[in-house]
Amino acid sequence: MPVPVGEIYGLINQEARGEGSVIAALEAVQSRYRYLPPEALLLASERFGLPLAQVYAVATFYNAFSLKPKGKHCLQVCLGTACHVRGSPRILERLETRLGLRAGGTTRDRRFTLETVNCLGACALGPIVVADGEYSGQMTVPKAETLVKRLLRAEAEVTHD
């Protein structure tokens, strides 16, 4: 798919409000495309008059930015302290095994991305897994298993159709 450079440049221009807004501009692109296409960095560097090397440093420093496209489904496991003491590492491990992924990775077929986050601020429900924006609380290894199975099954159906 060709990268819609015009649209990206439009987003960047929209956010370009004064000094320092390069991060906001990259955020706008990231939230629209769920990653930063390389073109976006060059356009931002041009728009803000910053060296490309500096924009690249910013894009690789902050966790919110991803330079690789994400999978169709995104699973986030909270590894905040509250979730940790309630056993989230084991849930993460199970998801890693099931999806054949390491945290932070995307499957080859670009169907799944597995990420970790540090506290979603809903610690009462920990451990928490967010699947495509939907929160599941009080996770256990068996519940995680069910969740993955459901997603995998849904995906398998899509492929068959």
């Binding site: 000094e19 320092g20 807004s21 390069v22 991060i23 955020e27 803000f48 910053l50 500096q54 910013v58 420093f61 902050y62 966790n63 919110a64 930015f65 540090n118």
Partner: peptide
């Protein structure tokens, strides 16, 4: 944008400045 160190005041200011 997802960096704990940006809670530190001087890092936070660098971030507001777009760095």
């Amino acid at each position: 944008s997802g960096a704990f160190v940006c809670g530190e005041e001087t890092a936070l200011m660098a971030s507001i400045e777009g760095r």
